[in-house]
């Protein structure tokens, strides 16, 4: 019965189709050029789809405390709103039927939120599971995504333009001696989250030629982040410390600084290097747009004599 349904679903698709293996290890047959994509994670998959001009049949969105819906990051970066793009699900509350009602030809979700319902979603349309927190480089993830949605050429063109842009921003400076480290300071419980990869931040600073600080080695190999006690702040050595704040929660660049001061008092004052605070909605997603903004937020007077 299931096979019949699948066959019926696959019929209207173009005959061209390809097999891919997703991040959860499933082999999925997907259309060559998907025309109705449902994205089930706002600031991971929807942002990439929006930047690559993928025809979205629907996206997941979050519930604001006033009851309205918003597509985190896709709204800040590309002005995307629901219901301008139809609602596919409220974050973490996927209803396969609602997804089915959008008649998608491809569903893309993420490991943490979508894996449980993959079986059901696969009845609706080919379903790809992405793992953005598995320790892979953001550009690799983005390239794979572009391949799934038939945007490889566009991706390479955007990448080339981004790299050219980075050269302009660098302005001939050699930044390879500079190290950077993205850190989230939790103002509630006094812990620090050390990040190996942080979407747009990694794309921006790697492309500018900076080096990830050694402290990122605290993060286990197959992960993108790890939580450590604020007592470890003393071990953080970098020329640029990248902090982020959620502007949609009315946080300001001072919010992460204050959080850092509460968790590790006096550390930022004695830090010595540069501290930059960027909007998390723009810096966390994997996008050239957000990464370009992060590049421009890097202090112009940055100079690193030798690797620290």
């Amino acid at each position: 019965m299931i096979r019949l349904v699948l066959a019926a679903l696959l019929l209207p698709l173009p005959l061209l189709a390809k097999d891919i293996t997703d991040d959860a290890g499933f082999t999925v047959t997907i259309p060559d050029d998907p025309q109705r994509v449902v994205s089930l994670h706002d600031w991971i998959t929807t942002v990439m789809a929006a930047e690559l001009g993928v025809p979205l049949a629907g996206t997941s969105a979050r519930l604001r405390s006033d009851g309205s819906l918003y597509v985190r990051s896709a709204e800040e970066l590309f002005g995307m709103t629901v219901p301008e793009v139809p609602l596919a699900s409220i974050h973490g509350q996927t209803d396969p039927e609602q997804v089915a009602a959008l008649r998608p030809d491809l569903i893309i979700g993420n490991l943490g939120d979508t894996l449980d319902q993959r079986d059901q979603l696969a009845l609706v349309a080919p379903t790809i599971i992405m793992d953005p927190e598995g320790g892979r480089d953001p550009l690799d993830l983005y390239r794979a995504f572009a391949g799934w949605v038939n945007r490889s050429e566009l991706f390479e063109a955007k990448l080339a333009a981004f790299q050219a842009d980075a050269q302009g921003v660098a302005g001939g400076r050699d930044l390879s001696a500079c190290t950077y480290l993205p850190v989230l300071a939790n103002d509630r419980d006094g812990t620090l989250t050390i990040l190996r990869h942080y979407g747009g931040v990694t794309m921006a600073l790697d492309t500018l030629g900076l080096t990830l600080a050694d402290a990122a080695g605290m993060v286990p190999e197959s992960q993108s982040r790890t939580v450590v006690s604020a007592e470890m702040a003393g071990a953080l050595r970098a020329d640029v410390l990248v902090l982020t704040y959620l502007s949609s929660r009315e946080e300001t660049p001072d919010t992460p600084r204050n959080a850092f001061d509460r968790a590790a008092p006096g550390f930022l004052q004695g830090f010595g290097g540069h501290v930059m605070a960027v909007e998390r909605e723009r810096a966390y997603p994997i996008s050239f747009q957000g990464a370009a903004e992060v590049m421009r937020a890097l202090p112009a007077d940055i100079a690193c004599a030798e690797p620290r």
Binding site: R62, L63, H91, R188, D189
Partner: peptide, 24 residues
Amino acid sequence: SLDPDLFGDLMGWLVGDIGNFDYL
């Protein structure tokens, strides 16, 4: 579950912990 990204750093507090307390 509605927005785990908002509550992510709350895990220790939800279980109860004096190492990670609410400074604020």
